[in-house]
């Protein structure tokens, strides 16, 4: 069996780190779901204000999504830019 090289170890650990980084997606998922649920109940209570509720909900969801996207960007950096390759 071949020995594990340093570069191979770095690649493997980067992949594991990328996988761990996208766990950040849990938080925005819960947050967006809560926002969508309250949006739906608001539309049920006041169907006339559907447009305003919709735009407010989408704005809040997009802001909540940001933290998840930070995790995604970190994962993509680890996978494709490989910042630790030269270490």
């Amino acid at each position: 069996m071949d020995q594990i090289t340093n570069q191979g170890l770095i690649s493997a650990c980067s992949a594991i780190g990328a996988g761990l980084a996208v766990i950040a997606g849990i938080g925005p998922g819960v947050g967006q779901g809560i926002a969508a649920g309250y949006g739906a109940s608001a539309v049920g209570r006041n169907p006339g204000a559907k447009g305003d509720i919709m735009s407010t909900m989408l704005l809040g969801q997009a802001v909540a999504e940001t933290t998840g996207l930070y995790g995604l960007v970190v994962a993509l950096l680890l996978m494709f830019v490989k910042p630790f390759k030269g270490v």
Partner: peptide, 16 residues
């Protein structure tokens, strides 16, 4: 930073 990363992350995720 948050404005640009939000846009970048969303569009890059779609492209990938």
């Amino acid at each position: 930073v948050s404005l640009s990363l939000r846009l970048f992350g969303n569009v890059l995720a779609g492209t990938v």
